[in-house]
Amino acid sequence: KNAAQIVDEALNQGITLFVADNRLQYETSRDNIPEELLNEWKYYRQDLIDFLQQLD
């Protein structure tokens, strides 16, 4: 998997990933985040941060 796929997957589930103060953050109206997504975000944290910062 790559960062773009993970960001896309999150968006499809109503979750927006973004970077604030060099930390990976998310916004969602969901009550909870599936644990497998959280684990994936932790595992790919630096890739996601790098990818999202390139988009800014």
Results as ranks from 00 to 15, higher is better:
52 L>M: 04
10 A>L: 03
1 K>H: 04
4 A>Y: 08
21 D>G: 08
18 F>Q: 05
1 K>Y: 04
41 W>Y: 06
56 D>K: 08
8 D>M: 15
49 I>P: 00
53 Q>N: 13
12 N>T: 13
24 L>I: 07
13 Q>V: 08
45 R>E: 15
49 I>R: 03
41 W>F: 11
56 D>R: 04
6 I>W: 02
19 V>D: 02
37 L>W: 08
49 I>S: 02
45 R>T: 14
37 L>M: 12
12 N>V: 13
12 N>F: 10
36 E>R: 09
24 L>Q: 00
35 E>I: 13
21 D>A: 06
56 D>E: 13
22 N>T: 05
9 E>M: 05
54 Q>A: 13
56 D>I: 10
34 P>F: 04
1 K>R: 06
19 V>K: 01
27 E>P: 02
45 R>A: 15
19 V>Q: 03
28 T>S: 11
40 E>W: 04
23 R>A: 14
15 I>W: 03
32 N>E: 13
27 E>T: 14
12 N>G: 12
40 E>S: 06
33 I>N: 02
38 L>M: 11
28 T>M: 04
23 R>I: 15
20 A>F: 12
37 L>N: 03
8 D>V: 13
20 A>D: 10
12 N>Y: 09
21 D>L: 05
44 Y>M: 05
22 N>L: 06
30 R>G: 08
35 E>F: 09
14 G>F: 05
53 Q>V: 12
12 N>K: 15
23 R>D: 15
55 L>F: 12
29 S>H: 12
3 A>E: 02
51 F>I: 03
44 Y>K: 04
38 L>V: 09
51 F>R: 02
5 Q>S: 08
36 E>K: 09
11 L>P: 01
7 V>M: 06
37 L>A: 03
13 Q>E: 10
1 K>C: 04
55 L>H: 12
35 E>L: 11
39 N>G: 06
47 D>L: 11
21 D>M: 05
42 K>E: 15
15 I>Y: 09
12 N>S: 12
24 L>V: 06
44 Y>A: 07
33 I>C: 02
6 I>R: 02
40 E>N: 05
8 D>C: 14
33 I>Y: 02
49 I>W: 04
2 N>C: 09
46 Q>M: 07
45 R>S: 14
37 L>H: 02
30 R>C: 06
36 E>G: 09
22 N>W: 05
9 E>R: 08
41 W>L: 08
19 V>G: 01
2 N>L: 12
2 N>S: 15
11 L>G: 06
4 A>K: 13
4 A>V: 06
27 E>G: 06
36 E>T: 12
52 L>T: 01
17 L>T: 02
52 L>E: 00
23 R>K: 15
52 L>I: 07
9 E>T: 06
1 K>S: 04
13 Q>M: 15
29 S>I: 11
7 V>F: 10
38 L>R: 07
22 N>P: 00
31 D>Q: 09
42 K>H: 15
51 F>G: 00
51 F>S: 01
39 N>H: 09
10 A>T: 03
44 Y>C: 02
14 G>V: 02
54 Q>L: 11
52 L>C: 01
49 I>K: 04
50 D>C: 07
33 I>S: 02
52 L>G: 00
8 D>A: 15
7 V>K: 03
26 Y>P: 01
55 L>W: 10
15 I>K: 00
16 T>G: 04
28 T>G: 06
43 Y>N: 11
46 Q>T: 08
26 Y>F: 09
51 F>P: 00
39 N>R: 12
12 N>A: 15
43 Y>C: 06
42 K>S: 14
24 L>E: 01
48 L>S: 00
6 I>V: 07
20 A>K: 15
14 G>E: 05
32 N>K: 12
40 E>G: 02
42 K>C: 11
11 L>Y: 12
28 T>V: 04
33 I>Q: 01
53 Q>S: 15
13 Q>T: 05
13 Q>R: 09
26 Y>D: 00
18 F>T: 11
44 Y>E: 01
15 I>D: 00
56 D>V: 12
49 I>H: 04
7 V>G: 00
36 E>P: 07
13 Q>P: 01
11 L>M: 11
16 T>R: 15
24 L>M: 03
33 I>H: 02
13 Q>G: 06
47 D>V: 13
34 P>T: 11
22 N>Q: 09
1 K>W: 04
9 E>A: 06
8 D>Y: 15
12 N>L: 14
27 E>R: 15
53 Q>A: 10
35 E>R: 08
38 L>F: 10
37 L>S: 04
37 L>F: 07
5 Q>G: 05
48 L>F: 00
36 E>D: 12
26 Y>V: 06
49 I>V: 08
47 D>Q: 14
33 I>F: 05
49 I>D: 01
2 N>V: 09
22 N>G: 15
8 D>P: 01
10 A>V: 02
29 S>N: 13
9 E>D: 10
30 R>Y: 08
40 E>H: 05
19 V>N: 02
20 A>W: 10
18 F>A: 05
24 L>A: 00
26 Y>H: 05
48 L>K: 00
17 L>E: 02
34 P>I: 03
43 Y>W: 11
49 I>M: 09
18 F>R: 05
47 D>E: 14
50 D>R: 13
20 A>C: 11
13 Q>A: 14
42 K>M: 15
26 Y>S: 03
4 A>S: 10
54 Q>I: 09
52 L>D: 00
23 R>S: 15
17 L>Y: 01
31 D>Y: 07
20 A>H: 12
11 L>A: 13
3 A>Y: 03
30 R>A: 10
8 D>K: 15
3 A>H: 02
45 R>D: 09
28 T>E: 03
3 A>R: 01
17 L>D: 02
23 R>M: 15
18 F>M: 07
32 N>H: 14
15 I>T: 02
32 N>V: 12
49 I>A: 02
29 S>G: 09
52 L>W: 02
8 D>R: 15
5 Q>E: 08
42 K>Y: 14
49 I>L: 08
24 L>F: 04
54 Q>N: 12
1 K>P: 04
50 D>E: 13
41 W>C: 02
2 N>M: 10
34 P>S: 09
25 Q>G: 08
47 D>F: 07
41 W>K: 00
40 E>Y: 05
23 R>L: 14
43 Y>H: 11
10 A>G: 03
6 I>Q: 02
55 L>T: 12
56 D>G: 14
44 Y>R: 06
40 E>R: 05
32 N>D: 14
51 F>H: 08
1 K>I: 04
23 R>W: 08
14 G>R: 04
22 N>H: 08
22 N>K: 07
48 L>W: 01
25 Q>M: 15
2 N>P: 12
35 E>N: 10
10 A>S: 04
44 Y>S: 04
51 F>C: 02
15 I>E: 01
17 L>Q: 01
40 E>D: 13
55 L>D: 11
5 Q>M: 10
38 L>I: 12
26 Y>M: 05
54 Q>R: 14
12 N>P: 01
5 Q>N: 06
52 L>N: 00
2 N>G: 11
3 A>G: 04
38 L>G: 03
13 Q>W: 12
6 I>S: 01
24 L>Y: 01
5 Q>A: 07
20 A>Y: 12
24 L>N: 01
46 Q>Y: 07
33 I>R: 01
42 K>L: 14
55 L>C: 09
52 L>R: 00
7 V>Q: 02
32 N>T: 13
4 A>I: 06
31 D>T: 09
32 N>F: 14
54 Q>W: 09
43 Y>V: 13
42 K>R: 13
43 Y>I: 14
47 D>S: 10
52 L>H: 01
14 G>L: 04
21 D>W: 05
42 K>N: 15
9 E>H: 07
17 L>W: 01
38 L>Y: 07
32 N>M: 11
55 L>Q: 14
49 I>N: 02
28 T>N: 04
36 E>A: 12
41 W>G: 00
21 D>I: 03
50 D>L: 12
50 D>H: 10
25 Q>V: 10
37 L>P: 01
9 E>S: 05
51 F>D: 00
27 E>V: 14
56 D>P: 12
18 F>Y: 13
26 Y>G: 02
19 V>L: 10
18 F>L: 09
25 Q>P: 01
6 I>E: 01
